[in-house]
Design a protein around this nucleic acid. Structure first.
Lengths: 234, 234
DNA sequence: ACGGATTTGTCCGTATGTATC
DNA sequence: TGATACATACGGACAAATCCG
């Protein structure tokens, strides 16, 4: 005899709880542990219910912060419309694979010495980064520094357009942080190779290595997403 | 469910904040705590973002004093200020030369039959166009149709970004002169070759021909501007 | 020259959601 | 289901450096 589904009970009580809250206020729900205690059920049931509400867009959660009522605060910065919403991961990688090697080429031709030393500085920071948030930030900073060094403001604007979408899609790579931890050293080596090629004023090599780097990233993310879909099915 | 790092969000907002500040003034940014309050995030996220900006050389910080915009005062300023209008043109052509061949490649791989027939229709209209104004219109339409056929919304957005700059007024006068009557037939033939390659699903040829076409345009515009500068001196 | 106020730099504890057993 | 370890976010507390009166 299957035990009674506490998740649906918790979901019901959560709905009424949210309904009772003052509208328009960015109310913060009690913690999962408190809710579990209040509903006299386990935390798993509460979490299942919260997942449903999050999927419905009624609440949003942030690790280390709490659970909040209302739609997730938007990244209120899209000067080119809601491009982020329409593009998916494959599109982003396709564009990156075709744009960033060219930027690396131009950077190898035009990067000024202080720009190159900044790249190396960023490489050090990237190595030193312990948490994934910092890593994402410094990785983005490195690629952007290369794009800046291409010396073409229009090209940089295009890179920023991609980068903005990429940050919205950042959850993909965060998802695979455990697996990509094994690849951290690979990425670091590829980054160094790219910067070295730029420093040696070798545009062909710089472009090739950038493409190789993005291909590695692409393959890993592909494997990640396909594994997710497999586990979804299973 | 895109989970966003607060650091990258803070970095975005800081970039816009810095960009909005008056140029040339050694502006002082708000304190880290004020920024954290303004961005509705923690001080740590703000500090991570500031570290990136500092490594990029856009800001510098001094303990007990504050955070300031611009390069460190000890370093000699190396302002390669605003880019001239002529380099602006070079930038556009540089980007087009590196983007549109790729779009043509993708179009050759993915363009649907009705999209290709639309290209041929545009070719006819381009041939029929008598005045330069409508020629520009249909020329732009053709290139955009190719970009659309690449089947990547993000890539299309980037093309539109370039196209917007291209349609600048100051730029239009130069363009009109480059479209000398002698080259109209050349352009028309190149357009047909590109569309034919796309129709034959030949991505390599499509990319090559697109590049050749843009190189022709590029060379003509270069000659125009160099003649201008010569006549300016004389 | 001195001292209080302010700001960045640094560390750590607490609280929270996430994941695994 | 319950329990435990883990990653993250936020804020407090303190030090170091600076500024100002």
């Amino acid at each position: 005899m299957p035990s009674t589904d506490n998740s649906s009970l918790a979901l019901d009580r959560l709905r009424t709880l949210i309904r009772a809250l003052p509208q328009g206020a960015d109310a913060k729900l009690p913690t999962e542990r408190q809710l579990a205690d209040q509903f006299e059920t386990g935390r798993r049931s509460v979490r299942r219910a919260l997942e449903v509400l999050e999927a419905e867009g009624r609440i949003w959660r942030k690790q280390g912060s709490g659970t909040f009522v209302g739609p997730r605060p938007e990244n209120q910065r899209n000067p080119f419309g809601d491009i982020a919403a329409e593009t998916d991961f494959m599109e982003v990688m396709e564009v990156r694979l075709r744009i960033e090697p060219q930027l690396a080429q131009l950077a190898a031709l035009r990067a000024k010495p202080d720009a190159i030393s900044r790249m190396r500085e960023i490489l050090v920071r990237l190595d030193e980064s312990a948490d994934s948030d910092s890593r994402e930030l410094w990785d983005s900073a490195l690629h952007r520094q290369i794009a800046r060094s291409a010396g073409n403001t229009l090209f940089l604007a295009m890179f920023d357009l991609v980068d903005r979408v990429r940050q919205d899609e950042a959850w993909q790579s965060i998802r695979g942080r455990a697996r990509s931890a094994a690849y951290l050293a690979v990425y670091a080596e590829q980054h160094r190779t790219i910067v070295d090629a730029i420093g040696r004023r070798d545009p062909v090599k710089a472009g090739e290595e950038m493409r190789r780097h993005l291909m590695t990233l692409h393959d890993n993310l592909i494997r990640q997403t396909s594994m997710e879909s497999l586990s979804d099915v299973g």
